[in-house]
Computed example of a mutant assay.
Amino acid sequence: MPHTPSGGAPPGAATADRGPADRVPMSIGSVLGLLREEFPEVTVSKIRFLESEGLVEPRRTPSGYRKFSAQDVERLAFVLRMQRDHYLPLKVIREQLDARDRGEQVALPGPAQPPDLLDGAAAPLDTAGAARVGRTELLAASEITEEQLAEWESYGLLGPVENGGYPAEAVEVARLVLDLGRFGLEPRHLRAVKASADRDAGLVEQVVAPLRRHRNPQTRHRAEATARELATLAVRLHATFVQAALREQRD
Score class of each variant (00 low, 15 high):
Ser154Glu: 10
Phe39Arg: 04
Leu35Val: 08
Glu248His: 15
Val79Leu: 09
Ala227Gln: 00
Val44Cys: 07
Leu34His: 13
Arg132Asp: 04
Pro89Leu: 00
Ala239Cys: 01
Gly165Ile: 09
Gln206Cys: 03
Leu211His: 02
His189Ile: 04
Arg182Tyr: 04
Val161Leu: 14
Gly165Phe: 13
Gly164Glu: 04
His238Leu: 07
Gln113Asn: 03
Val73His: 13
Ser30Ile: 06
Trp152Tyr: 07
Asp119His: 12
Leu108Asp: 08
Gly33Gln: 13
Ala131Pro: 04
Arg215Gln: 06
Thr43Ser: 15
Ser63Pro: 00
Phe68Lys: 08
Thr226Lys: 01
Gly7Ile: 02
Gly129Gln: 15
Arg36Glu: 10
Val193Thr: 09
Val173Gln: 13
Arg100Leu: 13
Met26Gly: 08
Val161Ser: 03
Leu190Arg: 02
Ala121Ile: 02
Lys91Cys: 01
Leu108Arg: 15
Ala130Asp: 14
Pro20Arg: 11
Asp17Cys: 05
Val235His: 12
Pro20Ala: 10
Arg66Asn: 11
Arg84Met: 06
Ile144Met: 04
Val42His: 02
Glu95Cys: 03
Thr226Trp: 07
Glu137Leu: 02
Gln105Leu: 03
Ala14Glu: 09
Trp152Glu: 11
Ser52Gln: 13
Arg102Tyr: 01
Thr127Gln: 12
Leu237Thr: 12
Gln206Ala: 14
Ala70Glu: 03
Arg220Ile: 08
Ser154Pro: 03
Lys91Val: 14
Leu149Lys: 03
Ser52Leu: 10
Thr219Asp: 01
Ala70Lys: 02
Lys194Tyr: 00
Arg175Asn: 07
Leu50Lys: 06
Glu147Asp: 10
Ala150Pro: 00
Arg59Ile: 05
Arg100Glu: 12
Arg59Val: 11
Leu230Trp: 00
Ala225Ser: 15
Gln105Pro: 01
Pro58Gln: 08
Gln243Pro: 00
Phe241Thr: 02
Glu53Leu: 11
Arg220Val: 05
Glu137Gln: 12
Arg135Lys: 11
Leu97Trp: 04
Arg81Asn: 05
Pro160Thr: 14
Ala201Trp: 12
Phe78Val: 06
Val133Ala: 11
Leu125Trp: 07
Gly156Lys: 06
Ala112Pro: 01
Glu162Lys: 14
Ala195Glu: 12
Val235Lys: 10
Pro25Leu: 02
Asp126Ile: 03
Val73Arg: 12
Leu230Ser: 00
Ala130Pro: 04
Ala70Ser: 13
Val177Tyr: 02
Glu146Val: 10
Tyr155Asn: 01
Asp116Met: 12
Glu57Thr: 14
Phe68Asn: 11
Arg182Gln: 05
Ala122Asp: 08
Asp200Ser: 15
Leu117Pro: 15
Arg81Phe: 06
Pro5Asp: 06
Arg81Ala: 06
Ala9Leu: 05
Arg94Pro: 00
Asp101Cys: 00
Gly54Arg: 05
Gly134Trp: 01
Arg48Gln: 15
Glu224Gly: 09
Gln206Ser: 12
Phe78Asn: 06
Pro62Cys: 09
Val42Glu: 00
Thr127Leu: 08
Leu34Cys: 06
Ser6Gln: 01
Arg84Tyr: 04
Thr232Asn: 15
Ala150Lys: 12
Asp85Leu: 13
Arg135Ala: 03
Asp22Leu: 15
Ala9Phe: 02
Arg132Cys: 03
Ala150Gly: 00
Thr232Cys: 14
Ser30Ala: 15
Val173Pro: 08
Ala14Asp: 12
Glu172Asp: 12
His3Ile: 14
Pro40Thr: 06
Asp85His: 10
Asn216His: 13
Ala121Thr: 03
Gly64Gln: 08
